[in-house]
Nucleic acid binder design. Sequence first.
DNA 1: TGGCATTAGTTTCATTTGAAACTAATCTGC
DNA 2: GCAGATTAGTTTCAAATGAAACTAATGCCA
Lengths: 188, 188
Amino acid sequence: MKLMPSPTAAPELVLERFLPYRLSVLTNRISGQIARLYERRFDLTIPEWRTMAVLGRFGPMSANEVAERTRMDKVRVSRAIARLARKKRLMRRPDSDDGRRVVLSLTPEGRAVFEEIVPLALGVEARLLAPLSAAERALLERILARLEECAAANFAGSEDAASQRPPRGGAQRSSVSRRRAGIGSSRT
Amino acid sequence: MKLMPSPTAAPELVLERFLPYRLSVLTNRISGQIARLYERRFDLTIPEWRTMAVLGRFGPMSANEVAERTRMDKVRVSRAIARLARKKRLMRRPDSDDGRRVVLSLTPEGRAVFEEIVPLALGVEARLLAPLSAAERALLERILARLEECAAANFAGSEDAASQRPPRGGAQRSSVSRRRAGIGSSRT
DNA sequence: TGGCATTAGTTTCATTTGAAACTAATCTGC
DNA sequence: GCAGATTAGTTTCAAATGAAACTAATGCCA
């Protein structure tokens, strides 16, 4: 039987049971498999695939809208678009109403690739969910929604840090802040 | 009411509802928050933190054992160790029995940092789990375990790809295989 | 004993990444 | 109109990353 922890017992942290760590390992594995699949069969990175996915599903839109929908930053989107354009999987049409915008749309070839990938992607998802019962899936859905909400809230709450930024040429930055603040990419 | 899908209806893929994508976004957010926390307060990256976490919890071990426990590749571990050693948070003692091995252990300073972080990390986890009921947490545990199992199985099943590798100097590699096979880092 | 495969750990190198800077077009207030 | 602020998208640059090569010590077995 389990004894009561002594009043002074330090709480334990075992990495293998720590939720953020577990999520990270799990997600990276899944993303890795998917990335390999897309790369090997379609010469497609995950940012490229995500871009195609939203264009394929929702039709033409600007790079910014792609960034919002995929939650990728605009740099990644910009590069994904450049590569897709090079491979002739999407077209960029300057917006006549707003000279800054560029409207993106899949080429017929891009759409063909998209339509070939969709069932594969859904198949991966189905295989992942296969061992779960319907009830478990429903609960997973709810749990994910809550965690997303919670993470988004905390996320928003910590954005202040970047507010007062010194200009680039501005000489010194502490060695701490110099070490990349960059963070959670997961090429996924 | 919902109509039956027509026999020819293509299954739909909406990125925002696609499990691998959702996991990725969620995980990156969480990892990002944590990384910011560790970096700002302790000048510690996630690979460094993971290394300290296993050394702090399980005591001295070799770099390889750290890699196994943290599921990081040995390159990452090697670099994390180098940085931690530079910052005097861990010590490397050559193993007298096996000249290849180096036994790592936290310095007193490293341990102090470790003990300061543990409650913070557990706090982050607790905040994440706060909106979930006990029943939901239990089910989350089960679901995670199943997904991990499933992902690990598929993972193992797809390792063959790297088997016959051409030597480095070996002239050409296809543009496909040249484009990094690298994948799911998520600096997490 | 000696040679060849293996293991621990590091280094090299090509690539990805994102914050910050940058360019160019549009909006805003006056 | 028109100056300054904002927005769309790209480029620059300093890391981080990991596959493959490398170095060095062991294991194995003949």
